[in-house]
Design a protein around this nucleic acid. Structure first.
Lengths: 220, 220
DNA sequence: AAATGTGAAGAGGTTCACAGCG
DNA sequence: CGCTGTGAACCTCTTCACATTT
């Protein structure tokens, strides 16, 4: 079973995964729920960690803790990080460029295999062996070389059209940086959408600053 | 009272704010909880919206809906978006550059007033009238021209140091793009931290794709 | 009639306390 | 003795149903 079921949040599992990578890099072969919590800056209680891991079927040794390597592997499996994912980035401005560069440098299982833009100044550029194509060709190109995930890094006005184009091209998931609500009508194979709103993230901070007090740290 | 209290989530309030901007741009002067929900792609139930707004003290007219303009103003006030905020971006690689450009173009109340980098190739560059300084000078520069918010767009290894530097320089909030848990020790004036983990956002999608089914849309 | 406002029910997620192993 | 595993209490957030107002 891949789906952890209920009571387990994916962002938390990813945080564990990242912390375990760090622990492994530091040479630790075993880790307790308590020390894992410390690695996460005490944002998650040890009990919560144990509940999550237990629900995943990842068991530790009482009195000792969890074996780092198999646990990390198990989490990677649950998160879908044990296979390769093909990504198409639409909108190759600063943001698209930054995303492609960042994700390529850091995660080997994610490969950016298609780039699209509308501007004639950008179309035709080559980035790490990938040529930027015109958005008008998106559907045709993706028909030839399918992608799992589409990243929308275009201005808000264009985002909805791009989303529909991506959905029509067989993309199954969309990461949207445009500050718009994408209206996805239900299709046969549903498209999973996740939004990253940079201005929205900032407002969370400004709200906190306006209120002025409250706990010191917050997790994303 | 600025703090909405409890049961009200800030991301949701920001979503309302954005939807109301859109409604205002479309010329609507009044809006119902139901049509607001439609603008948000039905991700939030009308009842939820009413509860939230009511908790904020924003009242509508029964039988008609809410007045767009004052409601938007009220939300902006609660979110802290009615004053200007000074931002320092640390790490002026692709990501820092993209963030600065994006936020400057889109939000007038956020101004990027300081840029820092470590690389001699980048230090000295001028972006929209702002000269990129060496990170070594961060504390000195910010002493002269204080900032409210620091954005960390440096590699993971450097993130912790930068965070401490920012905290020591009077920054009250941090937006962190580095995939690391920042260990903030409690200070007199607490520093609010918010993390944006791009690889983490992708894993949420890959997890969903691995599981394979489930509802069509998800909100960030 | 058409919406809002709101107490009450419900669901979901978190913490507690402690039993169970190594 | 140390740490995991887990049912039960707890708490927060969401949804429902309906009274209320224009």
């Amino acid at each position: 079973m891949i789906d952890p079921g209920f009571g387990v949040s994916i962002p938390r599992l990813y945080a564990y995964h990242r912390a375990l990578q760090q622990a492994a890099a530091e040479g630790k072969s075993t880790i307790t729920s308590h020390s894992l919590a410390a690695l996460l800056g005490q944002t998650i209680a040890p009990t919560q960690i144990r509940k999550d891991l237990c629900a995943l079927g990842a068991h530790g040794r009482r009195g000792h803790g969890y074996a780092v390597k198999p646990l990390r592997g198990h989490l990677a499996w649950v998160l879908g990080l044990e296979r390769d994912w093909r990504i198409a980035v639409v909108g190759f401005g600063y943001l698209g460029h930054a995303f492609a560069t960042f994700i390529t440098a850091r995660e080997t299982r994610f490969s950016v295999v298609s780039l699209f833009d509308r501007s004639p100044h950008v179309v035709g550029q080559v980035w790490q062996g990938v040529r930027v194509r015109d958005v008008a060709q998106l559907q045709r190109v993706l028909r030839g070389t399918p992608c799992d995930i589409g990243v929308i890094a275009v201005p808000s006005q264009a985002a909805q059209d791009v989303a529909e184009l991506l959905a029509a091209s067989g993309v199954r998931a969309i990461l949207n940086f445009a500050p718009t609500t994408l209206q996805m009508r239900a299709t046969q194979t549903p498209v999973v959408v996740r939004n990253i709103d940079l201005a929205g993230e900032l407002s969370i901070l400004t709200h906190r600053l306006s209120v002025g007090s409250m706990p010191a740290v917050e997790e994303a």
